[in-house]
Design a protein around this nucleic acid. Structure first.
Lengths: 206, 206
DNA sequence: ACATCAATGTACCCACTGTCAACATCTCCG
DNA sequence: CGGAGATGTTGACAGTGGGTACATTGATGT
């Protein structure tokens, strides 16, 4: 009987573990999610966790999808802030905002961002490619096509190109050789990247 | 067989350790670089390694710079393969080849690529930003400016934009949601990305 | 009331890092 | 030559973290 996973002893432990794990992830990234520490914080012995998760990987995977959702929400918030009405300009602005939100989230929540993309055995690649942030980006690109800023042919692969660009910048700024870049420079570089991508995709069009 | 310089105890052990470590890194990535295993493979007791490296991190850092060099060489090899003579076309081709070499290296040597960019305590960010692959890219972009394909103003931040794009694609294909993408799709996506970046940078120019 | 099973706890094993101490070699220099 | 100093060895140990075996507690259904 599925029913409502009733709290037997603790009061739904699974959610509590994910919660504590997410907090650890926020502060210390993927490696900070230590099963024993998660259990400790939840006031439970480390073995209790194994009743709810096959292994650490499964817990991490759950936290990852939670983080992914938060990223998506951050992007959505910024999309909702776009006031432009002219279709083409609006779609372009949305593309930039999407990218900006992505990098912004990575920088403001480095731990969660890292967890969202740390590879786990439990999740399969394909399922993630058609969920959350990726879909949002896809919608924005579709609007660009509708607005005539991108040709249908040019739409092909545009999603991955955009994604790669902002993801790459995030990673370089976070763990890569570009970490420690002054905020002002980060801003400039982000602008340049967004402009370049927009220009690259819409180049030959109006 | 070796018969070469066999100085006193082992012959320069430091280099041998880095070598063995690099091999482990190639196969199993950063986590595969286990100090004791490295020592074992070098035919040396685990404690000997600590005579040459303060800790595992320092060894890893050394392997990282080695990996970085290999990446640079892979890029250089592809650059040398460009036969185009017209300055502008040549510079553009070089830009594409640089990017292609980057992603290609990441896919063919995932372990080394991961090690090259795994953050260690010992290396400082700034020193890496002005070394190896980055400089190579800078030269290519300078040639684009000289050839008139990019305005001097447009050159600003172009290096980071290019880098972010190819790095992001590499990461997404390697550990990210795009892992498992069929080779043919990878190729298509890479082409799209390179074209987009080139178009984005040279957009308004001849 | 009692069997059952989910939920939890105690006590392990294993792998890896990092230390320490004592000892064995090899190189070089006075 | 003989000692200083760097290099390598052996073996042990503490700490951390993942994972498992087995026993125990407690809610539930009949």
């Amino acid at each position: 009987m599925p029913a409502t996973t009733k709290p037997y002893h603790h009061g739904n432990l699974r959610a509590a573990l994910v919660d504590a794990g997410a907090e650890l992830a926020r502060v210390n990234g993927p490696d900070g999610v230590v099963l024993r520490e998660v259990a400790r914080r939840t006031g439970v012995s480390h073995n209790a966790a194994y009743r709810h998760f096959a292994d650490r990987d499964e817990l991490l995977s759950e936290i990852a999808s939670l983080a992914s959702t938060q990223l998506e929400q951050a992007m959505q918030r910024r999309l909702d802030g776009v006031r432009e009405t002219d279709p083409a300009r609006r779609a372009r602005a949305q593309l930039r905002e999407t990218g900006r939100a992505y990098v912004e989230f990575a920088l403001s929540e480095p731990g969660l961002f890292a967890v969202a993309f740390c590879p786990t055995e439990t999740d399969d690649p394909t399922s993630m490619a058609d969920a959350g942030p990726y879909l949002l980006l896809g919608q924005v690109l579709d609007e660009l096509v509708e607005a005539g800023a991108i040709s249908p042919a040019g739409r092909e692969g545009a999603d991955v190109a955009c994604w790669a660009a902002v993801h790459g910048l995030s990673v370089l700024l976070l763990d890569g050789p570009l970490r420690g870049l002054p905020p002002a420079d980060r801003e400039a570089v982000l602008d340049k990247l967004l402009v370049t991508i927009e220009q690259g995709l819409t180049g030959s069009m109006g």
